[in-house]
């Protein structure tokens, strides 16, 4: 299989504290049409890694070294204008909070259409038809295009976000905790929708989550991050079924199961240091 995205030795630190590595020598790949999940606790560097791929690191942070290659393009060598041309067109993005990611004073049809007119130059009737088709694709009736974000539920807003992110049929979708703020039944619907779209469009997905249940459902490959470093990566069945790193095992031991058979074991960080 060919790599859609390949990250090699990515290292990120604050500009003012270059020795404090928030992301330390991270390497992994995402194959065409596959899903790679990055899992880890808060502060593990999973979101920063995704932001670095999109070229959206906060100004206070700096990529010290490493390469990010996407469809043969070295992203770290791209100008801001080149990155803008890529984002929204060849790479789509979805964030955690569907409330704050949408503009409250613009109707959703307009917001979905923005990237279509910016990247593909669509306008008028062609734009309208495409927006309607996208809404239908994510399970929202086309006539709701004139609705504003506050007229939609949380799940519907996340569907709108998905419609926006896939509008230009990107080859890669980056999703940062897209279902964390949603109810379980809505989460299940959104995960099913993402999997179906991914399949149909042969899209690669970089999916960030802290939930191992979600990983088990959607991932092909898993990258486990801890304090800025990749501690383990591989095929989902191997990593979840037979973890090789003590941190992965410890993290799995913290997750209660739906059957209630499992004894929870909190992470003993001191022991972990010795074991690793």
């Amino acid at each position: 299989m060919s790599d859609l995205l390949r990250i090699e030795g990515l290292t990120i630190a604050p500009r003012t504290m270059p020795q404090r590595l928030l992301v330390n020598n991270v390497s992994f790949a995402l194959e065409v049409g596959k899903t790679t999940c990055i899992v880890g606790e808060s502060g593990s560097g999973k979101s920063l890694t995704a932001l670095a791929v999109m070229g959206l690191l906060p100004p206070a942070l700096q990529r010290q070294s490493g390469s990010i290659s996407f469809q043969g393009t070295e992203l770290t060598a791209c100008s801001p204008a080149q990155m803008r041309a890529l984002r929204g067109k060849r790479m789509g993005m979805i964030f955690q909070e569907p409330m704050t990611s949408l503009n409250p004073v613009l109707n959703i049809g307009y917001q979905i259409g923005e990237s279509l007119s910016a990247h593909l130059g669509l306008s008028g009737k062609a734009l309208k038809t495409r927006v309607a088709a996208l809404l239908e694709q994510v399970g929202i009736p086309a006539e709701r295009a004139s609705n504003y974000p506050d007229e939609l539920s949380g799940g519907q807003r996340q569907r709108v976000m998905i419609a926006m992110s896939i509008a230009c049929e990107p080859s890669m979708l980056i999703a940062d905790e897209p279902t964390t703020a949603l109810d379980v039944t809505v989460q299940a619907q959104i995960l099913a929708l993402l999997s179906e779209l991914k399949q149909r469009m042969n899209m690669g997905m970089l999916f960030i989550t802290h939930d191992f249940g979600v990983v088990a459902d959607i991932a092909d490959d898993v990258v486990v991050m801890f304090r800025g470093e990749v501690v383990e990566s591989g095929a989902v069945a191997d990593v979840l079924g037979n973890p090789s790193h003590p941190y992965t095992q410890a993290l799995l031991d913290c997750v209660p199961d739906a059957e209630g058979n499992k004894t929870l074991k909190p992470i003993d960080y001191a022991w972990l240091k010795e074991a690793a």
């Binding site: 596959k34 039944t185 299940a188 995960l191 459902d217 739906a258 209630g260």
Partner: peptide, 28 residues
Amino acid sequence: VEQIYREPQQEYTRNLLNSIPGQHRLAH
């Protein structure tokens, strides 16, 4: 709790339990 997780009587409860992530493989 045992009984409800094993044999949920209501459609809504079944739906909730079915939505717990980690039970249905969506990737192929």
